[in-house]
Simulated assay, not measured.
Amino acid sequence: MILVFGKSGQLAQELQHQADVLALGRSEADLLRPGRAQAAIARHAPSVVINAAAYTGVDQAEEDAVAAHQINAAAPEEMARACAGLGIPFLHVSTDYVFDGSGQAPWREDDPVAPLGVYGRTKLAGEEAVRAAGGNYVILRTSWVFSSHGANFVKTMLRLSDTRDALGVVSDQIGGPTPAADIAATLLKMAQQMQAGAVGGTYHYGGQPAVSWAGFARAIFAQAGRNVMVTDIPSRDYPTPAQRPLNSRLDCAKLTADFGIKPPKWEAGLALVLKELKI
């Protein structure tokens, strides 16, 4: 049995659509309460655990660091230690925000980490705790997640296009939009291989090709048939409480070499999401 932490988020919903999993929401396992994650694993005795839960409010985390640390670092540590004790694989999702976004080269798994804000620091602390637990783990760093569920950039752009015919969108942040459905499929494939004896580690999985937010917005409007003019703007013209990395490109070669999984093409994933949204 696959136990999934998270129930209503983008990734958790995709995991439930694609596989027979037991997904635990806050009512079943409140990750803000220490000990609940470990207790859930002991109670359900799964064959593999996937952590699809996270504190993802990047700006809110700047004022809510205690809760962000509990969900993004302390709870994954509990999960990883419990899985290590049972000898079962643990798969944990992390983020490009562990890097400072400098340069233009795609980030490799062994590049130096230097998060810019609370969200990135708490996710990095979670990574370090998972590695230290000593079990067979996967840390899957991904970026710019989108789907037909919840709140994300695709749905925001579509909502704005209902009332706007022109938008200014940041063009100096470059990354890989990643369909949640593809992340879910990748985690399930990795879990299967790990149960068969594969050894995990830290991996990158981001959509290809790299694009700016402005370029992504243009693709959304083009595929959706929305006539919206997008103007490129620099990040400084769209200030936010938390600084975003300018370079979120991820080198996914290690994942392909070790698990035979190639990075997703986000244009195809976008088409599927728009179909799900009946657009």
Rank of each mutant, 00 (worst) to 15 (best):
M1S: 13
I2H: 04
S8D: 14
L11D: 01
E14S: 11
E14G: 06
L15N: 00
Q16V: 09
H17Y: 00
H17N: 11
Q18I: 00
D20F: 00
G25L: 10
R26E: 12
D30Q: 11
L32W: 06
R33N: 10
P34R: 12
G35W: 05
G35D: 03
Q38M: 10
H44K: 02
A45G: 04
A45E: 15
P46K: 09
V49R: 01
T56K: 08
G57R: 04
V58K: 00
Q60E: 15
E63W: 12
D64F: 14
A65T: 14
V66E: 15
A67W: 02
A68R: 01
N72P: 04
N72A: 02
A73P: 04
A73G: 05
A75E: 00
E78I: 02
G85F: 01
L86P: 07
I88P: 00
L91Y: 03
V93T: 09
S94V: 02
V98W: 03
F99C: 12
G103F: 12
A105D: 14
P106A: 13
P106T: 09
W107H: 14
R108C: 15
D110T: 14
D110V: 14
D110F: 11
D111C: 14
P112E: 10
A114W: 08
A114G: 12
G117P: 03
Y119Q: 06
G120H: 01
R121G: 01
K123V: 03
L124W: 04
A125C: 05
A125Y: 00
G126K: 00
G126P: 01
E127T: 06
V130Y: 01
G134Y: 09
G135H: 01
V138N: 01
I139C: 08
I139Y: 01
L140V: 09
W144S: 08
H149C: 08
V154G: 04
K155Q: 15
T156A: 14
L160P: 03
D162I: 03
A166L: 09
V170N: 01
D172R: 03
G175L: 05
P177Y: 08
T178Q: 08
A180F: 07
A180Q: 10
A180C: 07
A181N: 07
L187P: 00
L188G: 06
Q193I: 03
M194G: 06
Q195C: 13
A196M: 11
A198D: 02
G200A: 04
G200R: 02
G207T: 07
P209W: 05
A210C: 02
A210N: 06
F216R: 06
A224N: 12
G225D: 05
V228N: 11
V230K: 11
D237R: 14
P239E: 05
T240Q: 15
A242M: 09
R249F: 11
R249V: 12
L250W: 09
L250C: 14
C252E: 12
A253T: 15
K254I: 08
K254R: 15
L255S: 03
F259W: 07
G260H: 05
G260P: 09
I261C: 09
A271T: 10
L272E: 15
V273F: 00
V273K: 00
K275T: 07
E276N: 10
K278E: 14
